[in-house]
Amino acid sequence: MAINNQNGYGAISIRKVGKIYDPEGVHVEAMRDCSFEIAAGEFAVIVGPSGCGKTTLLNAIAGFDTITSGEIYLDEELISSPRKQIKPDVDRMVVFQNGALFPWKTVVENITYGPLVQRKMKKPEAMDAARDMLSKVGLNEIEDKYPEELSSGVQRRVEILRALINKPKVVMLDEPFRGLDAIAKTVMHEFLVQIFCTASNTMFFITHDLDEAIFLGHKVVIMTTRPAQVKKIVTVNLPWPREHHLKGSETYLDLKREVLEAVHEEAKKAFEAGEREMA
């Protein structure tokens, strides 16, 4: 399956984006001239060395932070530039690295929070929609639990549902499965593939896990060490829906080799830069 977007919303264009933190003081250049395109309904995976500025880019698209040069467009509309920064909104949902479910709300209350706070749905309607989503992914039994009673894998799935109920154009996930073990991860990947094949959102997915990157992405965007730029974009021509046996295929292994090589080069540079900074 190719890109599965019917409505054609959610194309992101990142043009010569740069970000300097604390220009007067410490002056850390997180990104420089970073440009790439994500088509509507595309699953884009961003990989790169730790601290290279991937999250900075995500924050700018989400509207949590500003950029110091360049422009970001969402469906041809300028959403971020040094002169203009539009606020976070329901069209761009984020699933956070450490999870951001509201601990004082039950699962179903978390999921219905968006539609209710925007007054888009009445409470019974929102509850029905949330229960429907939960049962589709086999989580209907946990609707009245609080997040702290759930495993982190389940928490993350709930958080993804909380984002999706708002029908965003873009879902951004910042290393959502970090810290999960390999077995839990495969479950999460299947979950995400299932979600992605039924919804039509553009995905912006940050990870360090190269298997995850190739298994999930239409394309893998490899970033350089700081200041982040695009080093290489690898297109993943594996059939959708992605299934686990693909991981043994020749194409998959070739792709992995290609991505690994590019990432390794950058990791080495980052490591050496780190050594220099420490010295």
Binding site: K87, M93, V94, N98, G99, Y113, V117, N166
Partner: peptide, 13 residues
Amino acid sequence: PVSLKWAATSLGA
């Protein structure tokens, strides 16, 4: 955590 406030603004709060 700031992420809770961010999540809430994204959700339309």
